[in-house]
Computed example of a mutant assay.
Amino acid sequence: MASIFSKIVKGEIPCHKVAENDDFLAFLDAFPIANGHTLVIPKKEIDYLFDLDEELYSKLFLFAKSIVPALEKAVPCLRIGVSVIGLEVPHAHIHLLPLNSMADADFGKKIKVSQEELAATAEKIRNNF
């Protein structure tokens, strides 16, 4: 069964895309814990991050790293945090989190943002590449 992320990759479910190449996709989390909360995924559907082969694993993190400068320019913060949890969606993914304090990394606290706000944030990030 295809994960929600595979459906996003196929264009069956819309997303606020930040960056993309042949192997990876980065888009804003629809239920963010911080403004600019970005998900980075391999397009290939693999459930567990540590099941990625070494090359895909390395390239995924390098792709995520390439997004950070644009994200930092678009969403002022002290640091971009990285989190890998892997329980909420059965598709390997990395969370990029703009942080100003440790409290900003609380996955139990979602912030409310409209689709318009998500679209504007995604555009700001894309414009900073």
Rank of each mutant, 00 (worst) to 15 (best):
L78Q: 15
L71M: 09
E12W: 05
F31H: 13
F129K: 15
P98C: 09
K17A: 09
C77P: 08
F129A: 11
L62E: 14
A92E: 02
V18K: 10
L78E: 15
E54C: 06
L97D: 02
K44P: 00
S66E: 14
Q115A: 15
P14A: 11
E88T: 12
D47G: 04
D106Y: 11
N127H: 12
E123S: 10
V82D: 00
V113Y: 04
I4A: 15
K59Q: 14
L60C: 07
I94Y: 04
E20H: 12
H37K: 07
N100P: 03
F5C: 02
T38D: 08
P76M: 05
E72D: 05
K124L: 11
G86D: 02
N21C: 02
I80G: 13
L99K: 13
G11D: 07
N21K: 09
S83C: 06
F50L: 14
L62D: 08
R126P: 00
A64E: 09
L87C: 02
I46V: 15
F31R: 13
P76L: 03
V9M: 06
K65A: 14
L39V: 10
L71F: 07
K110D: 04
E117R: 14
V68Q: 13
N100W: 07
M1V: 14
S66P: 08
L52M: 11
I111E: 06
P90W: 07
A120T: 12
A103C: 02
I94T: 05
Y57N: 11
I33W: 01
L118V: 12
F107P: 05
E55Q: 13
D104N: 06
L52E: 12
A34Y: 00
V82E: 07
F50S: 07
I13V: 15
K110Q: 15
D51I: 01
P76F: 12
I94G: 01
M1I: 12
S83N: 04
L56G: 01
F63M: 13
F129H: 15
L96G: 09
V68C: 06
R126V: 13
T38I: 01
L96N: 03
I4F: 10
Y48P: 00
P98N: 09
L71A: 05
P90M: 07
V9Q: 05
H37W: 02
